[in-house]
Amino acid sequence: MTIIESDVKLAERLATEAGEILLGLQAGSGLTGKDLGKAGDEQANTFLMRALKAARPDDAVLSEEEKDDINRCSVRRAWIVDPLDGTREYGEGRTDWAVHVALSIDGVATVGAVALPGLGLTLTSGAPQPLKPAGTPLRMLVSRTRPAREALAVAEAFGADLVPMGSAGAKAMAVVRGEADIYLHTGGQYEWDNCAPIAVAQAAGLHVSRVDGSPLVYNCADPYLPDLLICRAELAERVLALVAALLET
């Protein structure tokens, strides 16, 4: 009898295996910087697209590295993948990069796996970790290169320490893992940047939303997502109020 792999196990396996491909390339190709990042994007994407076509031939796929097919919007189930989130960090030999594999069903981030290959971890929506206590002081994630005005203002209001970090997936998983308490992003992303992290964070019991408090919706005709908030549930109301006041000024 053929045993069909569950969606969450498939997501976990593919994210992990893509991460292993990327680690092997990083260690053995002799490439660095942008050349390494480009090769990593291509190889991880090729693997994920072939594997998803073989495992779920009737589902749609939206990948950062593929030409978008708008016909996916007519399909209830759409896999949303980022083969290498944090290309710059990967090319620099850092650990704060990730592989995202998610399944959106009817626009909802339902299944997600985020591999952190540099740390030897893959976190999934199917095996949420117990949340650790909040930090003292609170810790606020910001971009390594472009900290957003809103994030800096919220950090100041909370008296939070700033934690610079690379990829969106690495930031989101830092909140899941208890290494930070708030991830607020207002600089624009795409669905592949956050669908898998949102699924994992939501399963762990964290608050996830747009910065106006509305839900994040996936498999849209335009995959651009301007903003998001991932934080501990008890902080969400105050963070959302602070952002609303900032956006009015």
Rank of each mutant, 00 (worst) to 15 (best):
G86N: 01
L123I: 12
T249G: 07
A113S: 08
A11V: 11
I230C: 06
L247M: 13
L123C: 10
H207D: 01
G37F: 00
A51N: 03
G169S: 04
S29P: 10
A27M: 10
L48V: 07
S167V: 12
V111F: 08
Y190A: 06
A172P: 12
K38N: 12
A51I: 11
T95W: 01
Y90V: 01
P130G: 09
V142F: 06
D212S: 10
L84R: 04
L247I: 07
S6V: 07
G126C: 08
P83T: 12
V111W: 06
G126P: 06
S125E: 01
A113Q: 05
D193W: 04
W97Q: 03
P215W: 00
G205F: 14
K53D: 10
A157V: 07
T124C: 03
E66I: 12
L31R: 11
L103Q: 10
I105K: 08
D58N: 11
R210M: 08
P223G: 05
L22P: 05
K132S: 14
A54Y: 01
S209T: 10
L119V: 01
A18M: 07
S209M: 00
L121H: 11
M173D: 04
G120F: 07
L36C: 04
R88D: 12
V142D: 04
E248K: 15
R149C: 02
R88V: 14
D69V: 14
E248G: 08
I3H: 13
A115W: 06
Q189L: 14
G187C: 06
D7G: 01
N71W: 00
R94C: 12
L141F: 05
A170T: 07
Y218R: 01
L138K: 09
P130R: 14
I80W: 11
V108S: 02
T32M: 07
L25Q: 02
A180P: 13
Y218M: 08
A15Q: 02
V8F: 11
A221T: 15
G178D: 03
R144G: 07
E42S: 14
L25D: 03
F47I: 10
A203Q: 02
W79C: 09
A221H: 13
G159Y: 14
C231E: 00
